[in-house]
Amino acid sequence: MLGRELAAEEHAARRAEGHTEAAGEPLLAFEQVGRRGHIEPFDLSIQRGEVIGMAGLLGSGRTETAEVMFGIKRAHSGRVRDVEGTDGGKGADELHLRGPRDAIAAGFGFAPEDRKTDGIVAELSIRENIILALQARRGWMRPIPRAEQQRLANDYIARLDIRTSGAEKAIGELSGGNQQKVVLARWLAMNPRFLILDEPTRGIDVGAHAEILTLIRELTAKGMAVLVISSELDELIAVSDRVIVLRDRRQVATLVGEEIGLEPVVRAIASADTHTEEAPA
């Protein structure tokens, strides 16, 4: 299967590349963040340039975690600290994520799992879909000039190889993979620090799979942190620096470096009750 080969190749490439200069600097810290009935309180610190993979069965709380992280559902407990640029986390600012707008203001981006209902605005053009988040941040009073919109759209169409006859085509008419690329372009235009991708490769063709994985690697090379939720374990393993495993709405394992592999991940996902490893504090 292509995924398997891809995994090995990708992994090798990542290891060979090593980390860029920005990588490893602390960026964000989620501390005992949780929401009753959705996700047990969890700790997660995020470094620049890192890809965090999130694995688990359907209903294990992956999407719920992403939604709490992006402020779509408010956390009932814990806090989120913005650690970047502060002296080792001392005096760091606490982020209050009361909604997606707060998360976006803090430099987060989120490509949701259900692209059709939560991601794309089907009847709007590719151009409009790409600039939508940027425009929302600027406010309605300051429209992005048309020329700039076109430049951005054409730029991302070329960069992400979005297959379309033009930027004015309605996004709803594109294939799944190309829609996903437009949603990614929307967030890349925002230049986020932390990008959450919920099932970024679901329902798209194999060629686009590889392109999206390559893109994730490129982004992290520039220092962006990416959280990838995926049921495609091969891909998840291939692309991640760290894999977090969820079960029953609880983080049950964290795999780093050489531990990342299909077998350990599957074991963590499926094992009845014995935690492979405690989630780190």
Binding site: I104, P112, D118, I120, V121, A136, R186
Partner: peptide
């Protein structure tokens, strides 16, 4: 238009 077409997706892009 964005809110009218897909209020949820619009809110997720940060539109108020």
């Amino acid at each position: 238009e964005a809110v009218g077409i897909n209020r949820r997706a619009s809110a997720l892009t940060g539109i108020n």
